[in-house]
Computed example of a mutant assay.
Amino acid sequence: MPTLSDYLAFKAQRMAALREKLAAPDAAPAPLRAVARVASGSGVRPVSIREFTIVTDSAPALAGYNLGPTAPELLLASLASCLAHTYLIVAANRGAQFETLEVEVTAQIDFRGILEVTPDAPIAPSGLAYIARVSGDVSDDELHQIRTEVEHLCPVFRALVEPVPVSGRVERTAS
């Protein structure tokens, strides 16, 4: 069975090929798209991303059915996944030998803010923190350097620590 170290060697090869493609004069950013459609009778929000569907829902206290994670939980999942992937990218670039890798992201959410119960309660999740758990033949100094690179290169981490503007609009559709 292939190990994580084997995968990192494979990843390094794939990234080298992709870097070559991205160096072409006609290379462009990759578009991203997610669409949430509210199910009329339940309020459940399936989200379509490429050929995947993720069911999102609320807890029963907010009239949900607990059929899937909430959007704030998906934010944490997105950060955890992106950090883990970026750790793999940096490790592959450096030839680091990870045997295992796990990223845990934690936060809290104060529904008093969202439901306007307490005016000064935060609305956004707060106290975001992560722990990357790594085993393998890598020194503490190298792990520190890898962490610094990861936090510089991880797209979701960067979007959270240096928020990007979000534009929005409402379009009326036929019923």
Rank of each mutant, 00 (worst) to 15 (best):
E104K: 14
Y130M: 03
D137G: 04
R19G: 08
P125N: 06
A96Q: 02
Y87W: 05
F157I: 07
H152L: 13
S139A: 12
R172D: 07
E104N: 12
D140E: 06
V55N: 02
A24M: 07
L62I: 03
I114G: 03
L62E: 07
F52R: 15
M1Y: 05
A24V: 01
A17Q: 12
P122D: 12
A107P: 06
I131Q: 11
V170C: 04
C154Q: 04
V156S: 01
R45V: 10
T100V: 10
D141C: 15
V150D: 00
Q108G: 09
P119F: 03
Q97R: 04
R50L: 03
E73R: 10
T86R: 00
I131F: 04
L32K: 12
I109R: 12
A84I: 04
N66R: 09
V150I: 03
T173S: 07
E20S: 10
E142N: 13
T86M: 07
F10R: 15
A12R: 11
E162Y: 09
G136I: 11
L115D: 03
S78F: 11
L8T: 03
R172A: 15
A132S: 07
V134W: 03
E142S: 14
A92Q: 08
R45F: 04
V47W: 08
L83C: 00
Q13C: 06
A124L: 07
Y87S: 03
V166S: 05
V103M: 02
L79P: 00
L76Q: 07
P122F: 00
G168N: 13
M15N: 10
V170R: 02
G113L: 09
A91Y: 00
Q145I: 13
P119H: 09
A36K: 02
E104V: 13
H144Y: 11
E162L: 06
A63D: 08
V38T: 14
Q108K: 14
G43E: 12
D26F: 10
D26Q: 09
T148N: 06
A129C: 13
S40T: 05
R45W: 12
E149G: 03
L8K: 00
G168C: 05
V161L: 15
Q108V: 10
E20D: 10
Q108A: 15
R94N: 07
V134M: 01
A24K: 09
A61G: 08
S135L: 02
C82P: 04
I131C: 09
A17P: 01
P29C: 02
A16M: 11
A132P: 02
F111I: 12
C82L: 08
E142K: 11
H85N: 15
S40N: 11
E162T: 11
D141V: 14
G43L: 04
R14W: 06
V156Q: 00
G43Q: 05
T70D: 06
R172Q: 15
D110E: 14
A92C: 06
A12Q: 07
I114C: 06
S40A: 15
V164L: 11
V138Y: 00
R133A: 13
V138C: 05
